[in-house]
Design a protein around this nucleic acid. Structure first.
Length: 672
DNA sequence: ATTAGGG
DNA sequence: CCCTAAT
């Protein structure tokens, strides 16, 4: 059996990584290849086609894999968010899903996961037993809805899924994992393709998958979590998210944890609806049937009224529509709240209680949250609270060809134009450059100026709050201002700015053409959501500009990993070839333009030659700016010398101190 | 479009 | 980081 993994980059479907068989052979050891499960990286086109990766793409992946130490793991770099989602098969044959925020943090995440895994392994047993019981007791609904992409292009898959024998034991359940991340990170679709005996050969892998997935979200997970005391939940939470929580709502905690553990998407509605025995069971079954079901569900809800679909996908006969609705809603709510976990339990609790119709935006956020643990997203959620339905920025319309229903497709009401035209929205892309707009408005429309100015201020404030306290942002965002304004201003500040820059404005706003009604299968790609926004939205500071305008300054601290990559790149391509380096070493990190690289290098140079960076220590760098390890500086120095980039002033004085390494290139040393 | 430099 | 001039 073959598993195809496609990673689609959010931005207009340009795919970030992809690989095909050949790459497999190159990257993996023979024995791994012989493994029944073969991971194939392909690019998923917007229309859902799977296209073999190009060499270029493969290279990118390789680069990435390098990082990951070549576990049998495929990592999809979301680019902007640096989110990594990997599916790894451990030696034990257990499949594990990982989601980490960034490469640099990978280690940590893994560790955490490891802990979690350990903790949950115990539970697994229980789970399995339970599963067996369940399966024998009631037939699992095999029909699962598959992600549109997969289903569209790979009918086989769906078929296979369907064919899966419900009565089989858990282990033999063939499941196709479908992860669709609507968020920026793009989506990862994993479809298992039954080339041959799906059930036999595939079963092992699939079983693993399902087991894995089920761990937390499913029955067992549920149950387990259910049984944990608050304290334990807190502990778990801490382990999971690396921070404490004050929330006392068990349910909430459970959901959070489950989501996180399952890589979010997988958390099925059941997770949330635990209370109801019935539901739980149903869910379990459903879950066991297919992980993707959950995902699908969420997507559907996004649509606005995805209930119908949910039903479809949810094979469980017991499930009442209401239940489903509730479940999904709840879930969404959670997602929504997620990002703000940090401190206010108040808000959290409130959110948990509140039930409101899911917005598309929520979904986006959800996905974002999933990928990135929590990210206090600026306000968007709150704003929407008021008028939940229309999300100015954009809506995601999952193309689910699978469903006949036309109405499922999401459309966005373009209030901006006031035209009231429904536009199927593809992705949330910058509609226009806010900054520019504002300025231009100010300049040209004296009348509008007031309003605009106000907006500007508000925006500024928002940003400030972003940087400062998230809470405030949310709470204080009355959003009394006309929605329109919000739209024009806020939306976008999202990341698109940078994204467009670095990613090549490919997407430049591809606003979807107005299409009255589209078939379900429409071309729009659900995935392209720019999740980056969340990433980018953080740390945005507005600084006054001489001209009276305000410019936004994003600050993303350079991680050690990035620095190392940079250095590596410089050593490979030489300084000055920033775009090259960008391509080589930073293809995955969408932000960080070549200019950024250059700047960083400049800084590094400065730092490396600066008066003994190390010694005084705390004095100079207490800010929390990591001191940049000597070795790295040394490396920089070396490179600088090699390229005769030695800063004017400090030519050699410090070099001597650095030690032998430098001397290798000796000619540079004045002393010699 | 990419670079180098200044701010 | 952002911006701009120079290539």
């Amino acid at each position: 059996m073959e598993t195809v993994i496609g990673i689609v980059d959010n931005d207009d479907g340009k795919l970030e990584d992809s690989r095909v068989d050949r790459s497999n052979s190159a990257l993996f050891s023979p024995k791994q290849i012989s493994n029944p499960v073969v991971y194939k990286l392909v690019r998923v086109e917007g229309d859902g086609r799977l296209v073999p990766a190009t060499d270029d793409e493969v290279m990118e992946v390789e680069d990435f894999l390098e990082y990951e130490n070549s576990d049998m793991r495929v990592v999809a770099d979301t680019g902007q968010s640096l989110e990594c989602i990997s599916i790894e098969r451990s030696s034990s044959g257990k499949l594990r899903l990982e989601c980490s925020e960034g490469v640099s943090q990978l280690g940590t995440s893994e560790a955490d996961l490891g802990k979690l895994n350990a903790k949950f392994q115990i539970l697994q047993k229980v789970k399995q037993e339970e599963k067996l019981r369940l399966s024998s007791r009631s037939p699992v609904h095999s029909h699962v809805q598959i992600d549109s992409q997969c289903s569209a292009d790979n009918p086989v898959i769906s078929e296979k899924v369907r064919s899966k024998n419900p009565y089989q034991e858990a282990p033999s359940i063939a499941s196709s994992l479908n992860y669709s991340h609507s968020n920026q990170s793009g989506s990862i679709d994993q479809c298992s393709r039954p080339s041959e005996g799906v059930i036999e050969s595939g079963s092992s892998a699939s079983a693993v998958n399902s087991a894995l997935t089920h761990d937390f979200s499913m029955t067992d997970g549920e149950i387990c979590l259910d049984k944990l005391s608050i304290k334990e939940l807190h502990e778990l939470f801490k382990v999971t998210f690396g921070r404490e929580t004050t929330v006392k709502d068990k349910q909430w905690l459970r959901r959070r944890i489950a989501m996180s553990l399952t890589n979010s998407c997988d958390v099925s509605a059941s997770t949330f609806t635990v209370k109801d025995n019935k539901i739980t069971k149903k869910c379990e079954e459903e879950c066991s049937g297919n992980v993707s079901a959950a995902t699908v569900i969420s997507v559907e809800n996004m649509d606005g009224e995805g209930d119908v679909k949910y039903k479809d996908s949810c094979a469980v006969e017991d499930c009442g529509v209401d239940d489903n609705q509730v479940a999904s809603e709840t879930r969404l709510e959670n997602l929504n709240t997620e990002h703000e976990l940090d401190e206010d339990q108040q808000r959290e609790e409130r959110a948990a209680k509140r039930m409101r119709k899911p917005t598309k935006r929520y979904i986006e956020e959800l996905s974002e949250n999933e990928s990135r643990e929590h990210n206090p997203r600026s306000s968007s959620s709150n704003k929407n609270t008021g008028h939940s339905h229309v999300t100015p920025t954009s809506d995601i319309r999952p193309a689910k060809n699978a469903l006949p229903e036309v109405r499922t497709f999401v459309t966005r009401l373009d209030s901006l134009g006031g035209s009231g035209v429904q536009i199927p929205c593809v992705s949330r892309v910058r509609r226009s450059r806010p900054r520019k707009n504002i300025t231009s408005l100010m300049k040209f429309h004296p009348t509008g100026m007031v309003e605009t100015a106000k907006l500007g201020n508000k925006v500024v404030r928002d940003h400030g709050s972003d940087a400062g306290s998230v809470i405030q942002d949310k709470v204080s965002k009355p959003s009394s201002m006309p929605e329109k304004i919000h739209q024009s201003v806020r939306p976008t500040e999202s990341a698109s700015d940078r994204m467009s820059k670095s990613t090549s404005e490919s997407g430049k706003e591809k606003q979807c053409p107005v299409i009255g009604t589209t078939g379900p299968r429409q071309e729009t790609k659900p995935k392209k959501i720019d999740t980056s926004s969340c990433t980018e939205e953080r740390n945005i500071v507005t600084v006054p500009t001489a001209k009276g305008g305000m410019r936004r300054k994003h600050h993303r601290a350079w991680t050690l990993v990035e620095v190392m990559k940079l250095i590596d790149g410089v050593s490979r391509c030489g300084p000055g070839r920033w775009s090259e380096i960008k391509r080589l070493s930073f293809s995955s990190h969408s932000h960080r333009t070549s200019v950024d690289l250059k700047d960083k290098w400049r800084n590094l140079l400065k730092a490396s030659f600066a008066p003994t960076p190390a010694d005084d220590g705390m004095n100079s760098r207490k800010h929390g700016t990591a001191p940049i390890p000597e070795p790295i500086l040394v490396r920089v120095r070396e490179l600088a010398e090699i390229n005769s980039q030695v800063p004017p002033n400090f030519s050699s004085s410090k070099l001597t101190t650095t030690g032998g390494t430098v001397n290798m290139h000796g000619d540079k040393l004045g002393y010699l």
